[in-house]
């Protein structure tokens, strides 16, 4: 148990020291990563990219029926 804790502590220290002693370019790219992920996950995904079928239908049966109807009823090709 004590040994497991020691391993976890070492692991934590490894990442902690790594982030604490990061170079200037490292800090800069981490800021970019955080901003990027925030824009992608908290803005774009949430407000602009809902899952169309998840949002429109309650269950997989309805989703299957919808797509089957699309496959049966759609027309027009495009290149």
């Amino acid at each position: 148990m004590k040994q497991d804790f020691q391993v976890l502590n070492n692991l934590f220290r490894f990442y902690y020291d790594g982030f604490r002693n990061m170079s200037a370019w490292g800090r800069k790219v981490w800021i970019i990563i955080i901003i990027k992920l925030f824009i992608m996950l908290a803005i774009l995904k949430l407000f602009f990219f809902p899952d169309f079928l998840q949002k429109k239908y309650d269950n997989d049966k309805q989703r299957s029926e919808y797509v089957r109807d699309q496959l049966i009823n759609s027309s027009v090709t495009h290149d």
Partner: peptide, 12 residues
């Protein structure tokens, strides 16, 4: 993201 929003028939 685009698969789920813009290409839902394909994704399914």
């Amino acid at each position: 993201f685009e698969f789920g929003t813009n290409w839902s028939n394909y994704s399914w």
